[in-house]
Design a protein around this nucleic acid. Sequence first.
DNA 1: TCCAATGTTTCGCC
DNA 2: GGGCGAAACATTGG
Length: 229
Amino acid sequence: MTEASGYGEMDKSRIVNIKLEDIDTYGKNFLFVFKDFFVTVHLGLFGRMLVNKRKKVNASFALHFGADEINFYIAKTKLIEGKPRDHFNYKTDILKPEFDPQFIINELQTNHANETIGDVLMDQTLFAGVGNIIRVEVMYHAKIHPASIVKDIPEKKLVFLLKMVVDYAEEFLNRIKTDDVKEKALIYGKKICPKDKSELVVIDKMGKVKRKTYICPKCQKLYAEKNPA
DNA sequence: TCCAATGTTTCGCC
DNA sequence: GGGCGAAACATTGG
């Protein structure tokens, strides 16, 4: 039995006295699955979720189960017809067992060959769940410069990078629970490279992704065609 | 007090 | 209409 409330604009009239069949996630979205439709909840930068607790301000979205409730603050919600798998490709979700590195690499080399790796890592249709911190850390771990062009990166390097994405995403998830993501980051938010103690280069607004990018030019190799034919 | 930040969508202008 | 950038949303910590 369910009831929905909140000041968000989404029509909640269909979420009354129906069974919540499943709770799932895709990338940065929570998914609340009902028989004929599901609701996505995205917390953006400032969103919060509280279970059986409330903030003083009104929730933007809330689900009620008798005496129990899930409250979302500053959340964007959407009601979508059908099942999540009809709309989201789980092969692209970095924290799902279905995540398929070979599928992603094929997509990258086929449809994103001329883009920079720094840009494509933030593409939620290819790397659902990757955010700016994960993006920056993973490129450092894999020793790849963000301005590297996809087609110029050796496939073995891409395979390694995707492994770093999955590994670090799991580490990120654990660290966010203990609140030390930023402390334990190797390069994000830092001024000095932890390895060779040299100054980092910080580039804002590089590529299409206008987010702060931290780079160690000594550790991270730039893969870019040097002698165009 | 002010700014920047784990993010995404929408608007306005070529 | 595509591409691009700015603005919008709204909270929290430094």
